[in-house]
Each structure stands twice: as C-alpha cells, then as structure tokens.
C-alpha cells in the first residue's frame, strides 16, 4: 500500500503544480484506527497528507457533487462507478474530472474487527496481505482476506471503469463470487419471515441518517426525511417510520447503487443496510441487465422507456 500512497502523492503534486486541477480529493490518516478521512488537497504541502491503505472505504464521489472546479479524484472501482453515475446525472462534467484510478483489493470491515476484541484497538498496521491489530495489552495478526467488508469480498468491479491515470497495474477481477447470496436466501422465505427479518435488521436504527450522508447518490438539496411541508415520513423511532425511511432511501438508489458499502461502513449501529439496495441491484440486473456506473453512454433503466420493458407487475 506504501507504493499506492507514494504514487498518489506524486500524481497529486504534479497535477496541482501544472494547474491541471484545482484540488485533489483523496484520503488522509484518520484520528482513530481504521477511520481514514476524506481529504481535499489544494496545494503540494497538503498533497503530502494523502495516503492509501485498506481503510479507504468511504465513497469520494460524494464530494464532487455540483462542484465547478477542476478536480483530481482518487477512485477505486466503486468510486469510479459512482463518478460515472454523477456524470450521467449531470452532477459533474467528465472533463472537470481527472480520475486517479486505484486497482483495489478490498477494504477491511471495521465493524467486524472491532467486534473481535473486548478492549479498544489502538493501532492497525498493514503489510501485504496481513493486518496487525494491537491494543494496550494485546497484538494479533489477521489475514486481510478474512476481514474484508462483505461488499468487497463479493466485488466484481475492483478496477476503476473510468480513469485518466492508474497508480498501479490492474488487479484480477473476482469471478467466483455471488454478490446476491443473501438476497437469494431472503427470497426463499415466506412473507411473514421476510417481514420479521427486516424488522430485526432495522430495529437498532437510531435515524441518524449517516447512511444517507455517506451515500454519493443522496445529493438532493432537501432530503425527503428533512422536509416538513409536507412531511413525508415521521421523525420518530416508531418501527413504521424507521421502515418507511429505509424503504424510501433504498428505492431512491434503485438502478444507481454501486454497492460501495459506504452506508454500512458509517452506520454506528452496524446495521446491514445493503440488504435493501442489494435486492434492487439484483432486480435491475435480472430485469434490465443493468449494473450502475459501467458506461458513460448508456442511460439508466429508470429514466428510459423501451417497449419490451418487463411489465408483469401491472394489470
């Protein structure tokens, strides 16, 4: 990962120096282990803060919405797909972007790692495929592959789909994984079990909206949950309000979600929010053969009409 960091800094400095871009959006070391922060470098000094490791799971496409400057942006597979989605949805122009592509080998799941230990983790060090977790009175070596985020472990688009420059050679894409395994499992339940499954899933939700804030798709000037005239959804923690929020949030991402996992990563309660969006992704793939963010030239299924669109649902 050190090579990635050095290469990112080198590219960022070059772009800032020759005026290709006004800023470079990337990551810097966070104040807590496994919590890297998004960082906007506007001069070569602050470009030295840019870095890369397996804790860069946030989606940086979230920070380019409606910007007018020329932007250099560090993008792994999912970020690049969200950048494509942004371009398609007119939230940024392609020629404003200089995409620094990161061939990605997956991000580690801080929820999973934190749950493995009883005491606080004070440092997480990474070398190659192993990760050393240490605290005040312990130190343990883990294999990165075992603690990958669920979406990374089943990712089929690790390489950026759109980029101007790569920091390293492309990595091999995974082909023997099924991103929709859990969806298939839920599909086989009956209605009552499904209802209860989702009831349990979202019961810890505190309606903090971190999932919405971290999501690059959620760029509405006023979100439906914040509107008061009319008030679309109650603000309480009543199970019905919570479910309404989750259903609507997910449906707003239909045909747009790239399964980057930012929502799950930021959830303070560790809710598997992707269970909602994954079903929509699976439907989009099965009904329209569509995966979000793979091409700048194709319109998404929900904003086009074809005479052979599936219509079994309507009588």
């Amino acid at each position: 990962m050190k090579e990635y960091t050095e290469k990112i800094r080198e590219i960022a400095k070059r772009l800032l120096n020759d005026g290709t871009v006004d800023m470079v959006i990337g990551f810097r070391k966070g104040t807590l282990p496994m919590m890297n922060q998004p960082h906007i470098a506007t001069c070569t000094d602050s470009a030295d803060e840019l870095m890369w490791d397996s804790n860069c799971g946030l989606n940086l496409a979230n920070y380019v919405t409606d910007r007018k400057e020329k932007i250099g942006i560090v993008a792994k597979g999912c970020d690049s797909r969200n950048l494509v989605t942004h371009v398609i949805e007119n939230k940024i122009k392609r020629d404003q972007l200089y995409i620094i592509g990161i061939p990605c080998s997956g991000m580690i799941d801080h929820h999973k790692i934190t749950a493995m230990f009883d005491t606080d983790i004070t440092s997480v060090k990474e070398s190659g495929e192993s990760i050393t977790i240490s605290g005040n009175d312990f130190s343990k070596k883990l294999i990165k592959q075992d603690v990958l985020c669920e979406n990374c472990a089943a990712c089929t688009h690790r390489n950026p789909v759109e980029y101007d420059e790569l920091v390293a050679d492309l990595v091999e894409e995974q082909t023997d994984v099924d991103p929709y395994e859990s969806v298939t499992e839920i599909e086989s339940m009956d209605a009552e079990e499904k209802w209860n499954y989702f009831e349990d899933l979202i019961s810890p939700c505190i309606r903090c909206y971190a999932c919405r804030n971290a999501c690059p798709l959620c760029y509405c000037p006023t979100c439906f949950v914040d509107e008061s005239t009319p008030q679309w959804v109650g603000k309480s923690q009543d199970p019905i309000d919570v479910r309404t929020f989750h259903l609507l949030r997910a449906f707003h991402c239909a045909g747009r979600c790239t399964d980057c996992g930012a929502c799950e990563r930021v959830c303070p309660m560790g809710i598997k929010i992707r269970e909602f969006t994954k079903k929509l992704n699976k439907d989009c793939l099965e009904l329209y053969g569509w995966e979000a963010g793979l091409s700048l030239d194709e319109r998404p299924p929900l904003d086009t009409f074809k005479t052979d669109d599936p219509d079994e649902f309507i009588k």
Binding site: V183, I186, E187, A191, E192, E193, K194, W195, N196, Y197, F198, E199, R243, L247, A250, F251, A254, F276, K279, L280, D283, F313
Partner: peptide, 13 residues
Amino acid sequence: MKNFLEHTGIEPG
C-alpha cells in the same frame, strides 16, 4: 417496486 416491497415482507396479492 412491487418486487422490492414483497421482498421486504408485504404479502403477494
């Protein structure tokens, strides 16, 4: 949307 709601536990029908 029908698929999705039925996936989260609304009975078919």
